[in-house]
Amino acid sequence: MRMAELVMGVVMGIFSLYLMWKSAELPIGWIPGEGPGGGAWPFWLALGMLLCCITIVIRWAKRLTPQSRSKEVYMDARAFRLFLLNAGALAAMIGLFHIVGAYGAIPLFLIFYLRYMGRHSWRLTGTFAAVTPVLMFLFFEIALQKTLPKGFTDPWFEPIFAFFY
């Protein structure tokens, strides 16, 4: 945990420097007749971030925060595995949105989560995987007319839309 506190402080400090550099692509000083340049607001805020990160690192060195005194492991093997499984499954679902669309990706994610992670029966898994996209389609696409991504399955929905409209 102690090392993680330092790493986070340093990484965020570097990110602050990047933001300062990126903000400086626009003027950061006073422009006569226009006021502060477009980059001034984020530049000074990023400088504020950097100062906070320096303070966090100093406090870490002085062991002033509970994390800087902690001897706990930041993430044990089991926590890391759970994180990878969940974040990975989410990333895979979002990736699949581009290919098979929401109505393909969501059932696949539900099948993975309910069957593999939750060890639920095929009956329950199948029911959720089938009913959830149907309800979402009716709510978002028909009732609210909010179109979700469909990937290559887009043409398959034409007859359904023709039925409703």
Binding site: L90, F109, Y113, L114, G118, H120, T132
Partner: peptide, 22 residues
């Protein structure tokens, strides 16, 4: 284990709907 995937799905759809941008 039923509620978690539903929450994740709602998060993803909820993040997409305001701007309709992946």
């Amino acid at each position: 284990t039923i509620l978690a995937p539903i929450i994740f799905v709602l998060c993803i759809v909820g993040g997409f709907v305001p701007t309709m941008d992946m």
